[in-house]
Amino acid sequence: MKAIVRSRFGGPEVLKVVEVPEPLLKPGCVLIRVRGFGLNRAELYMRRGLWGTVTEIGGIECVGTVVSDTTGVHREGQTVMALMGGMGRTINGSYAEYVAVPTSNVVAVETTLDWDILAALPEAYAVAWTCIRRNLELKAGQRLVVRAGTSSLGQAAIDIGCELGADVIATTRRSDNETLLRSLGATHVVTTTGDLLAAHDWPGGKADAVLDLVGNSTVLDSLRATRRGGRVCLAGFLGGLAPLTGFNPLGQMPSGVHMSFFGSFMFGSPEFPLSEVPMQQIVDLASMNQYRGRPARVFGLSDVPMAHELMERNEAKGKFVVVI
């Protein structure tokens, strides 16, 4: 089979299309014929060797059809979505024509959506749903701030927040992104790289919930912008992996504000079963255009290095997907 293989750690040029054997199907796993996959910021860090243990074939999500399921849960030819379960970290990932994934990280869906649209959904919407409905426990009528609203995860969060009936504020570094963010349903758009409450277009008051996708560089500001009893969920590192230097909770965390983290590598664990995420409902809402998760750009397998390069330059503005 063809796969994108990382020859060493480094820039996009280390990714090459190579013929490799199909993955061995181990007990408890599903062999999937990959028809498409989304590209994720985490995969850039993995390619550079900044994300712990990784495999030569990257990719943390995919959509496709079942070739074989050792557990008998899924039937041959069934359309499925898969994410994490060690993909790209401990087992070869989805940058390939075939991938073997633990059954716990595979979800069957019924849909007529094209592969490129379907490929834009698994990671972004599963993570956004979990952060908003579980970690943040967002309710209708509450104020949700999505930091890095133009990212694929940010756009999914805006969709889910609006569908839930929240008042959504999206942040961006560039004022020319306002039209896009408002078209997605954001009530307010705040242009800032730092202090939310001091931004000239901040609508006043504090947030009930903040989904921070920028990361360590903004999370303390997100806490300051959240009301007593409110919640902040850190779920992305678009601003880089540098740690919080000299972090002192006693002096820097506001009293009464809750903070949590979510990483999609937890999907499939007893604490975060993937079956808890209503993927069929997400697909149905996307089919009805109530969720507007559409690929910002579609690539072929050999174009993955170019797509990585564009993502490194922050030129994605949404989800890049690959169709095989």
Rank of each mutant, 00 (worst) to 15 (best):
K2H: 06
A3M: 08
R6C: 06
F9P: 00
F9R: 06
G10T: 10
E13Q: 15
E13F: 12
V14N: 10
L15W: 02
K16R: 14
V17T: 15
V18K: 13
P21N: 02
P21G: 08
L24T: 15
L24S: 15
L24I: 12
K26M: 08
G28P: 03
C29F: 06
C29K: 15
R33F: 03
F37P: 05
R41D: 02
R41T: 02
R41H: 14
W51S: 11
V54N: 13
V54G: 10
T55M: 08
I60G: 11
E61W: 13
V63D: 08
T65V: 14
V66I: 10
T71M: 08
R75Q: 15
E76L: 06
M84S: 08
M87G: 02
G93W: 08
Y95R: 03
E97G: 11
E97H: 08
N105I: 10
A108S: 11
T112E: 13
L113E: 00
P122H: 05
T130Q: 10
C131Q: 09
R133M: 14
R133T: 15
N135P: 01
L136Q: 01
L136V: 06
L138K: 11
Q142Y: 03
R143F: 05
R147M: 12
G149W: 04
S152G: 11
L153W: 01
A157F: 10
A157Y: 10
I160D: 06
I160H: 06
G161W: 11
L164T: 14
L164G: 03
L164C: 02
G165N: 13
A166K: 10
D167G: 04
D167W: 07
V168C: 12
R174P: 00
S175F: 10
N177L: 05
L180S: 02
R182A: 04
S183H: 09
S183A: 11
G185V: 04
A186V: 14
T187W: 04
G194F: 02
A199G: 13
W202K: 09
P203S: 04
P203E: 05
V214C: 01
V219F: 09
L220W: 07
D221I: 13
R224Y: 02
R231L: 09
A235M: 09
G236Q: 00
G236C: 00
F237P: 07
G239V: 07
G239P: 14
G240V: 07
L241Y: 08
P243A: 09
L244F: 03
L244G: 05
G246L: 08
P249A: 09
P249N: 13
M253E: 00
P254F: 09
H258Q: 13
H258I: 03
S264T: 12
F267R: 09
S269N: 13
P270K: 14
P270V: 09
E271C: 08
Q281G: 14
V283D: 10
G293V: 04
P295Q: 14
S302P: 00
M306Y: 07
E309P: 00
E309T: 01
L310M: 12
M311I: 01
E312Q: 15
E315I: 03
A316M: 15
K319G: 00
K319V: 03
K319C: 05
